[in-house]
Design a protein around this nucleic acid. Structure first.
Lengths: 157, 157
DNA sequence: ACCACTTGGTTGCAACATGCAACCATTCTG
DNA sequence: CAGAATGGTTGCATGTTGCAACCAAGTGGT
């Protein structure tokens, strides 16, 4: 499990809250975006994000500490690379959800934006959607939050 | 489209970045989580999140301004409710991705956490996964970022 | 070998955001 | 009608962000 040093969970029982504690920050999300896109060097992130160096330095340190990135030092001791760990790579679904929500809701019809292509089809990556076990689309009104310690509802037993 | 007043996009061409500008903040994400869970009143958010009132007040104002929540005033002019707009409800996939990533990566095997149940099956909501058009699972290495203005790769034409 | 440039940072400082506590006008509740 | 709860706002101390300057180690060109 990810075990960040000196981080108090905002709401320890909720996976959404733990995830938000770990990656719920603009620069953190954009660093992960760039990492998934293959970027690994300090200067690549800096150029792509336009973020202040001290902030980038801080976020990279946090991401390494939290187990999302691994710092691979160069043989000469400097110019390390930052590579996604398994937990970091597992954020692909999240970043894709962010991207597709942004495409649907933060652009007007005429505006162009970058696109993720599936090279096997040449088409944009299909939208990720929550599905019920029977393959039906699942919306927020069909999902029921069960708090920890609470008995499962009748239907779930 | 969402048209927040006085917000400069960090990276206008990237949907991930626009989305991060709009919802890439811990409290914002947790307010959306609670809204999807049916909470609508100031005090409900306050109690659930444990956030300072001025911060909650600020985030609710931003969310309304950005078009993710609608403020429904009470007839008496006070005690309004905050309801998700369509764009806000569309964040269900994102919050679910956050939740499932958190479940996979921010808990040890023994730790318990809240769960989303699909009442139609009684089982936890299945994991959302990016799929290729042919139904194969799609990972970060199989997706290709195409920047705006850049020609589509050969395969996509 | 030398000099300039790039990389990957750190430090100092000003401005802004966050969080706590106190306060307050309404509005429910008994 | 008194008291509590609701939905905030304000002030202040502390923390975070972002800019600019600086710097040491490596890299490249001659």
């Amino acid at each position: 499990m990810l075990q960040p040093s000196g981080l108090e969970w905002t709401d320890p029982e909720c996976p959404v809250a733990r995830a938000a504690d770990l990656v719920g920050d603009k620069w953190t999300l954009l660093i992960i975006r760039d990492s998934l896109d293959g970027k690994r060097r300090f200067s690549e992130f800096e150029k792509s994000l336009g973020v202040a160096k001290n902030i980038l330095s801080d976020r990279l340190r946090l991401l390494v500490d939290r187990g999302l990135l691994a710092r691979i030092p160069n043989q000469s001791g400097t110019r390390s690379q930052y590579e996604l760990t398994d937990a970091g790579r597992d954020l692909f679904t999240l970043i894709l959800s962010l991207r597709q929500w942004g495409e649907r809701n933060a652009f007007t019809a005429g505006e162009s934006h970058s696109v993720l292509i599936d090279p096997s089809t040449g088409q944009p990556v299909p939208e990720v959607r929550p599905l019920s076990a029977d393959g039906q689309e699942l919306g927020p009104d069909q999902a029921l939050l069960v708090k920890v310690g609470q008995p499962l509802p009748e239907a779930a037993r």
